[in-house]
């Protein structure tokens, strides 16, 4: 989550209709396609530094993310690169596990810097013939937010802390997230203690009354 999805607004982008690849002219062929391409165009002239891509899966087994990046300040044409190859979204392409789950791909998972991106291409694969169709729903792209320029420390200092921190963080929760959430919990319990009556007391009646004649079907 990294705290981003909650308060950061996704980039407004155009998601093109999915294109399913077929052998031959595609019309006469009744076999299902196993590959699908979804292009996401980011706003024209405003390259985006991507923090996270989130979506809801619909029977896609693997997803590949390609990015069209433009080097800043140069007139050179934008170049495609593969940021992530065949990320498995389903435990087994033939069975349900993960078929309708929510996913996010964070910039740290990508093998290429997700900066100055003008277009994103999602290549979906479903090798199993068990499903009629597959796609991704609710694709959203969240921008990477630079730290506040006023608080920004000089490059060498931030480089230094980065070098220091990386090995320690292996396999451990983000200490800041933990501490902030625990602090929040602590504050919460303080509130709870001063306001004890909000706790559930297990009553099922409303003001002593529990006379019911019909169950609601809606």
């Amino acid at each position: 989550m990294s705290g981003s999805a909650e308060d950061v607004v996704p980039v407004s982008c155009t998601i093109k209709p999915p294109v399913y690849l077929q052998i031959g002219d595609g019309k006469a062929d009744t076999a299902h396609s196993g590959v699908c391409v979804v292009d996401v165009n980011l706003p024209f002239g405003k390259p985006v530094n991507i923090e996270e891509i989130t979506f809801k899966n619909y029977y896609t087994a693997y997803v590949t993310v390609r990015l069209l990046r433009r080097s800043p300040g140069q007139e050179a044409p934008a170049k495609w690169c593969t940021a992530l190859r065949d990320l498995p979204l389903m435990d087994n392409p033939h069975t349900e596990g993960g078929s309708q789950d929510y996913y996010s791909i964070h910039r740290t998972q990508m093998q290429a810097e997700a900066d100055h991106v003008v277009s994103v291409r999602l290549i979906l694969r479903q090798p199993s013939s068990a499903w009629l169709t597959f796609s991704l729903e609710d694709v959203k792209i969240f921008p990477h937010l630079e730290p506040d320029p006023e608080k920004e420390v000089s490059d060498w200092l931030s480089d230094l802390t980065l070098v220091d921190q990386h090995p320690d963080l292996e396999g451990l929760p983000d200490p800041q997230t933990v501490s902030s959430s625990i602090q929040q919990m602590w504050a919460l319990t303080e509130v709870m203690q001063t306001n004890q009556t909000t706790a559930s007391i297990g009553r099922f009646d409303v003001d002593g009354c529990y006379d019911i004649n019909l169950l609601s079907l809606t």
């Binding site: 989550m1 990294s2 451990l172 983000d174 997230t177 959430s181 625990i182 929040q184």
Partner: peptide, 8 residues
């Protein structure tokens, strides 16, 4: 992140 969410 998952672990710290679980802890919280």
């Amino acid at each position: 992140t998952e672990l710290s969410l679980t802890i919280a």
